[in-house]
Amino acid sequence: MRDFAEQLHPEIEVSGLRIERDGKRLLDIDRLVLNGPGPLMILGPNGAGKSLLLRCLHGLIQPDRGVFRQDGREMGPADRQHQAMVFQRPVLLRRSVAANLNFVLRRQGFDRHLRGPRVAELLAEGGLDGKARQPARSLSGGEAQRLAILRALATEPELLFLDEPTSALDPQATQAIEALVAAAARRGVRIIMVTHDIGQARRLGQDILLMQGGKVAEQAEATAFFTNPESQAARRFLSGGLVI
């Protein structure tokens, strides 16, 4: 009998995942099981395949081959309806801040009279109250990314993918994003996040996946990864050495 946390956080299994372009193998993962309930942070150098893995998991890219399973059955469009993704560069609709959230709520089937209060609630959560009528594309970088995360959360996802959401932000803006992500994780949203920032992985991560050259170099619980890394790549990565 699986416990409640496991039921909320289904096991995701990736097997035989391959992507090749121009003769170069970009992703090459024989087997990967993601089953921890806490935030999973994916680390690794540029070109390691982190973002590609995220896009494959979310169904945005069709791999050359590979199978994704959720709780033992093949992952399909119905499972992906319970996922959301936030990109490195936030893609906001050319509408007001509130309209960006309304766009999702309308698709979610929210009644018209319930949308307003829900938008206000989301904006308050992201510290964007007072900006509802402002054009979304006039927000600062940090505010825009917060809005992108709020819009993703408005879909009430079980699984939220974040692809380096703070890579271009200052510490204050990063802190606000991390607070949003941590709060979502506490509410039971499963987080899978790509980052280059080891400090961020320490702050947010419960599990760590280190990738290198399209392969998984190490997968471990965060404390074990940071105190006693097993792979040479992880040791070099954590010591500040160049992992290519």
Binding site: L60, Q83, L93
Partner: peptide, 25 residues
């Protein structure tokens, strides 16, 4: 080119994205 992945992530199909693209453009 800018919206495609985001709209798909939000569950909007290619055909259903047309009104959104026309309105935002």
């Amino acid at each position: 080119a800018e919206y495609a992945e985001q709209l798909r992530s939000l569950g909007v199909s290619r055909l259903a994205s047309v009104p959104t693209l026309l309105w935002d453009g």
